[in-house]
Design a protein around this nucleic acid. Structure first.
Lengths: 249, 249
DNA sequence: CGAAAACTTGATGGGGCTCAATGCTTGTGG
DNA sequence: CCACAAGCATTGAGCCCCATCAAGTTTTCG
């Protein structure tokens, strides 16, 4: 748990930790930074932190301390309603930034739970804000990340408000595919880290509906699914599924 | 259209225009600014701009020029899907900031349409960013506004994903009520600026469902509705409607 | 290995969509 | 000022998609 003790090992440990050589650099940080700026950002991200599967990274109601960038792993965020209603608001993977919703009130409004053993970079908000006052491209990048979250939310609203069950699921699978591809993984074959129930919660459907839709996709030759392992065998057909709502004329 | 010509009138015109004496100050700007900072912000908001009912403030796909703060009036934003599907993503009123979704890609993601004759303040993004680098409290305020939009979106996702028709409508009416109240208007009696179809689009329902639910609320004594005029006569009952999903145990 | 969690599949019912007809409101031009 | 049209709203009837309930199977994990 504590850093290794020899000098060489410490160096490696530090190098692995710092942002400037992090493999997620393109996802987390703006391009075009000079050495000094990168060094400042390294200091900003003051610790890497493991989160075990099932553990909470933060909980709704807790005071905002930091934002968290996911280094490895897979997480979900859940919004809670007073009456105990709960809904998955998003799934988050490598390079995603979590906690943006808490800036508004200084308290987290959703739970963040690891769906597999993960590792996050903690980013104190006040320091991020201070540094982004000095580095315009960092500021712009941060604003874009927040805006991207808003865009994503609009997409989910569209999905929830106007798509049928199979359209939603197809959109969900294609979105996952795209995000894995953007991170260098296969666009056609991956593991669903979440349960059918969690998918359903995210898509405003029940787990049985998810299960049935997956079975039907498989029957129709669009996917091959075995438990959490998914293979998209006909992406164009999945695409076609979305966007042919009633086919009126 | 052009400013009046006498000196006195010009002064009034300018005063009305500038942020530091704008009646929306508390909504738009952070508290605790000194004179000099307020003056800088005045310069930032370079023009007030009328938008006639039915006119577009901006359209999806158009390059982002500025953010817009609503001074008076009422607007909607609509996300568009490739296949022509369209959905109301939000209703916006006095003090709301529009265009945040466009920061991500530098292009607007949604249409913004005035639902009644309105007036907006144009805020060039690059200048806002520049100024927020100099004024920390402005920076923080801007981040909070973006975060608040994310929080709002999560609420809509919860609504769309897990509420029944009447719960959605009750939540919608209470939300409007609260926002009007926060702006000094009646919390119990107001005009719906939008059509039933637009409400339905926002709530993921059809206009007939909205109409039926409103009629039912009226039968049950929760509201009095005549066309667009709404009176909330039993707010506690409306609140109770939300959050008693299945009433299992 | 055994218990709990997760998943699949079937049967049934209901909430909201669809289609349809009618009434109301608003705006426009003669 | 009225007539007319177009948009908006209300209400009804029937149907379909998805939720619900239920049972059985597989997978996961301590």
């Amino acid at each position: 748990m504590s850093p290794p003790s020899t000098l060489t090992q410490i160096d490696i440990y530090k190098l692995r930790k710092v942002c400037s050589v992090c493999s997620l650099r393109e996802l987390c940080l703006p391009a075009g930074l000079d050495q000094r700026e990168l060094a400042q950002i390294d200091q900003l991200v003051n610790r890497r932190q493991p989160v075990k599967r099932g553990d909470y990274l933060f909980r709704a109601g807790i005071e905002l301390r930091s934002l968290y960038a996911i280094r490895t792993g897979f997480m979900k965020s859940c919004v809670l309603h007073e009456d105990g209603r709960e809904q998955v608001a998003g799934f988050h993977m490598m390079g995603d930034l979590m906690g943006l919703d808490a800036i508004s009130s200084n308290r987290h409004i959703c739970d963040a739970v690891a769906l597999e053993d993960s590792e996050v970079c903690e980013i104190p908000l006040s320091e991020l804000e201070a540094l982004s006052r000095e580095i315009p491209s960092l500021q712009q990048h941060f604003h874009r990340i927040m805006s991207r979250e808003i865009v994503r939310d609009y997409g989910v609203m569209l999905l929830l408000g106007s798509m049928k069950a199979e359209e939603r699921l197809a959109a969900f699978l294609l979105n996952l595919s795209q995000r894995f591809a953007a991170r260098g993984y296969s666009a056609t074959e991956f593991n669903l880290r979440m349960t059918r129930e969690e998918i359903g919660s995210y898509l405003g459907l029940k787990l049985e509906t998810i299960s049935r839709a997956l079975s039907r996709f498989q029957e129709d030759g669009l996917i091959a699914v075995r438990n959490k392992r998914i293979k998209l065998t006909d992406i164009p057909a999945l695409r076609a599924l979305i966007g042919h709502q009633a086919c009126g004329g």
